[in-house]
């Protein structure tokens, strides 16, 4: 693990990723949970009406 951290630090010093670092703070977990609850509140409007029929009829020919 020490080896990993050393390597990671080295790289971070050498260059900054093109996109922003993801910072993990304590509020992120709560926000994620709230977002999930919100999505679960509205998901039935998005889900196909008859789930059983939808799932049963989803038959594909095999591919590669």
């Amino acid at each position: 693990m020490a080896e990993q951290e050393r390597i990671k630090r080295q790289r971070t010093e050498r260059s900054t990723p093109a996109t922003g670092e993801v910072t993990v703070d304590s509020s992120k977990g709560e926000q994620l949970k709230a977002d999930l609850d919100e999505l679960l509140d509205e998901i039935d409007e998005v889900l196909e009406e008859n789930a059983e029929e939808f799932v049963r009829n989803f038959v594909q020919k095999g591919g590669q």
């Binding site: 998005v46 889900l47 196909e48 789930a51 989803f58």
Partner: peptide
């Protein structure tokens, strides 16, 4: 079946049906 439907719709390309987009 509703959980399997969620699984499938995660990958639905239609913006109005895609769960991955949400």
């Amino acid at each position: 079946a509703r959980l399997r439907a969620i699984d499938l719709q995660y990958h639905d390309l239609r913006p109005e049906k895609s769960l991955a987009a949400r």
